[in-house]
């Protein structure tokens, strides 16, 4: 991939479930090594967009490039994906779950795999409980295990679908510390959320509504766009909605 190539690129992507249009000619570019937030209310199309970007579903029209290539199994080992559901094997222990995903993502060297599994579990601060069955963990701990499963193979691009949903404020802060660490290591993060608390932590944001991106930029740029110096991101989002409605009418 050329250095100026976006880590993730979508051009004029549309998708619909039967007659329901979920994404409408959506385009975005995510530069490498940043945290990119997809912000919007439930039903805005965030999860569908992430599932398209990781290659689980195909767009009806438009094109997608991940690290300069179309999403496919060939490039899947360079992608991390943390779905909205915990998506863990509840009968297995934390270490068994993380080890399974390391193997699935082709971390074939045993010594390297053991090291990476330990690193991932330590990063989410669960090493002391690594032998516990997932079914015995709290919701927040399952989220942390799910994150460890997504990062264990050191993917340069990581998709996180509502990773902070259901987390208490303390754990939410911890998660954002993890994310900041990952971006500092050069990982590109694409994070969906419907809370503006999350938005403030991202380097770049795209506000989504009804299958479209209605505004994009850094949090500061989006706040400045409202014309009010002390505006919040909630106000920036509402401003974007009104502006979009004005353009559409």
């Amino acid at each position: 991939m050329a250095t100026d190539e976006p880590a993730v690129r979508a051009d004029e992507v549309s998708f619909n479930y039967s007659k329901l249009k979920v994404l409408d000619s959506l385009s975005l570019q995510v530069p490498p090594g940043v945290s990119f937030g997809l912000l919007g209310p439930n039903g805005a199309g965030k999860t569908t967009l992430i599932r398209l970007l990781v290659g689980l579903i195909k767009p009806k029209s438009g094109s997608i490039r991940l690290l300069g290539q179309p999403p496919s199994r060939r490039i899947a080992h360079r992608i991390g994906y943390m779905p909205q559901l915990h998506s863990l094997y509840s009968e297995l222990s934390i270490i068994q779950n993380v080890n399974f995903y390391a193997r699935i993502y082709r971390v074939t060297n045993r010594a390297e795999r053991e090291q990476w599994v330990e690193e991932a579990i330590r990063l989410v601060d669960l090493w002391e409980r690594r032998k516990d069955q997932v079914m015995k963990l709290s919701g927040g701990m399952k989220q942390r295990v799910s994150l460890a499963c997504a990062i264990v193979h050191h993917p340069p691009v990581l998709f996180l679908d509502e990773p902070t949903v259901g987390l208490d404020p303390e754990l939410r802060v911890t998660f954002w510390e993890h994310f900041a660490y990952l971006t500092s290591q050069g990982t590109t993060l694409i994070i969906s959320s419907h809370t503006m608390d999350d938005a403030a932590h991202c380097d770049l944001l795209a506000f989504m509504r009804e299958g479209k991106i209605i505004a994009r930029g850094s949090p500061a740029e989006l706040q400045q766009a409202t014309g009010k110096p002390d505006s919040t991101l909630e106000e920036a989002f509402l401003y974007s909605i009104h502006r979009e409605a004005g353009n559409g009418s």
């Binding site: 689980l56 199994r73 899947a76 994906y81 699935i104 499963c149």
Partner: peptide
């Protein structure tokens, strides 16, 4: 239903 299949489907496994 628990989403584990989808997670595997996003991986390099055929």
């Amino acid at each position: 239903s628990q989403g584990t299949l989808e997670r595997i489907m996003a991986s390099p496994v055929s």
